[in-house]
Amino acid sequence: LAGTVPLSGGAVLWDGADVTRVPAYERARRGMCLVPERQAVFGSLTVRENLELAARDPAVALDAYPQLRPLLQRRAGTLSGGEQRMLALSRALLARARVVLADEPAQGMSPAVAARTYELLGALDACVVVAEQRLPPALRGRPAIVYELRRGAVVFAGEAGELDG
């Protein structure tokens, strides 16, 4: 969807337009934000510099994840996995994207921070697409559409509350 990997088939339609061959940077300009599982931060930049890539004022991100405030001067590459996830998701919050694609957004986070992450994603005024191994507890019972895939085939499509464990 983000345009970082060529499709093996099908097409990507967005707002009625075929964007299959539109480069990733152009999709980002149109409001698509990708938070990949790996290499989601610029490791040689500080936390502050990473946040400033998305917005001049990082206040919204620091309010969302106050744990990042004391880390502003540290290089992002020195952060723990959970801290890097918070930083990457903070950039997505600052970007005011229309579509957020998040791969394993809570990976490496404590249960409390993971719950906060899903709360933040759920509050966005955007279409949020989450790729997870298991449906997070924070999404159960929420008005979310879930697709379960096995070996690339859809085996379930419906409300999150309808999905069995």
Rank of each mutant, 00 (worst) to 15 (best):
L72G: 08
R74S: 05
D57R: 15
L68H: 11
A55Y: 10
A76N: 03
R69Q: 14
E52T: 14
E49C: 02
L72C: 07
L62G: 10
P70N: 08
E52F: 06
A59M: 05
V47I: 07
P58Q: 07
T46F: 10
A64V: 02
R69P: 01
Y65H: 08
E52C: 13
L45V: 01
Q73W: 02
P70H: 08
D63S: 15
L71H: 07
V60K: 14
Y65L: 03
P70M: 03
G77D: 00
E49P: 03
R74C: 00
A61G: 14
R48G: 00
G77K: 02
L53Q: 01
R75G: 07
R48C: 00
V47P: 10
A59E: 15
V60Q: 13
T78M: 01
D63L: 13
T46N: 06
L45E: 00
D57C: 08
Q67F: 14
L51H: 06
A64I: 04
A76D: 03
G77I: 06
L71S: 05
R69L: 13
A64C: 08
P70T: 01
L51V: 04
V60L: 15
A76G: 02
R48K: 12
G77R: 01
L62P: 11
L53R: 01
A64F: 13
L51R: 04
L62K: 12
Q73P: 07
N50Q: 08
L68C: 10
A55W: 11
L72D: 09
E52I: 06
T46L: 04
P66M: 10
R75F: 03
L53M: 15
R74K: 08
V60P: 05
D63I: 06
R69K: 15
A76H: 01
L71P: 08
E49V: 00
L72T: 06
L51Y: 04
Q73E: 14
R75V: 00
A54M: 09
N50F: 04
V47A: 05
N50G: 06
N50I: 04
P70G: 07
T78R: 11
V47T: 12
T46H: 07
L45R: 00
A55T: 07
N50P: 11
G77A: 05
V47G: 07
L51C: 05
L45C: 04
N50M: 09
A54Q: 06
R48Y: 04
D63A: 15
A61R: 10
Y65A: 04
R56S: 15
E52S: 14
